[in-house]
Simulated scan of single mutants.
Amino acid sequence: MLRTDQLAFSMQGRLLLAPLSVSFQPGRLHAIFGPNGAGKSTLLRLLSREWGTARGQILLDDRPLSDWAAADLARHRAILPQQHALTFAFSAAEVVALGRLHAERRTATRERQIVADALAACGAGTLAARSYARLSGGERARVQLARVLAQIWEAPAGRARYLMLDEPTAHLDLAFQHACLRLARDWLQAGVCVIAVLHDPNLVLAYADDVLVLDHGRLRAQGSPSSVLNAELMQEIYGLGAERLQTPDGQHWLAVRANRAATP
Rank of each mutant, 00 (worst) to 15 (best):
H102I: 00
A208T: 05
A155Y: 00
D173Y: 05
A120H: 12
A196K: 04
A118E: 13
F88L: 15
R106D: 13
H178V: 12
L80A: 04
L183M: 14
S131V: 01
L174Q: 10
V194E: 05
L203N: 00
A150M: 12
G158W: 07
R130C: 01
H178N: 11
A103P: 12
L203C: 02
A129G: 14
I114H: 09
C193S: 08
P81D: 10
G138D: 09
A170Q: 11
A89P: 15
F88H: 10
F90H: 08
R130I: 03
H171W: 07
L163Q: 02
L174K: 06
R110I: 13
I152P: 11
A118L: 09
L174H: 08
W187H: 11
W153K: 00
V204T: 01
S131D: 11
W187F: 14
A70R: 15
S91I: 00
A71P: 12
A175P: 01
A170Y: 04
D166F: 05
R75H: 14
H84K: 13
Q83Y: 12
R142G: 06
S131Q: 08
G138C: 10
V194N: 07
I79D: 02
G137N: 10
H199E: 02
A196I: 01
A128E: 08
L174N: 03
P168E: 07
G191Q: 05
A124Y: 12
A208R: 08
S136H: 09
V143D: 04
E111M: 12
A160T: 01
A157V: 15
A97C: 11
T107P: 14
R147Q: 14
R77P: 03
E139M: 06
W187N: 00
T126S: 13
H178W: 06
V96D: 03
L98Q: 13
E139A: 06
H102D: 12
V143E: 04
H199P: 02
A141Y: 07
E94T: 06
L163C: 05
E111L: 08
T169A: 11
L205D: 02
W187A: 00
V204C: 03
D209S: 09
T109N: 04
A120D: 14
L98G: 08
A157D: 15
R134I: 01
Y207Q: 04
R110K: 10
R134W: 08
L212I: 11
L101T: 14
A121W: 04
L119P: 09
D209F: 06
R147E: 04
A89G: 08
L172G: 03
A89N: 13
Q83N: 12
L212T: 07
L212C: 09
L205E: 00
R134T: 14
R147S: 08
A118G: 10
L172D: 02
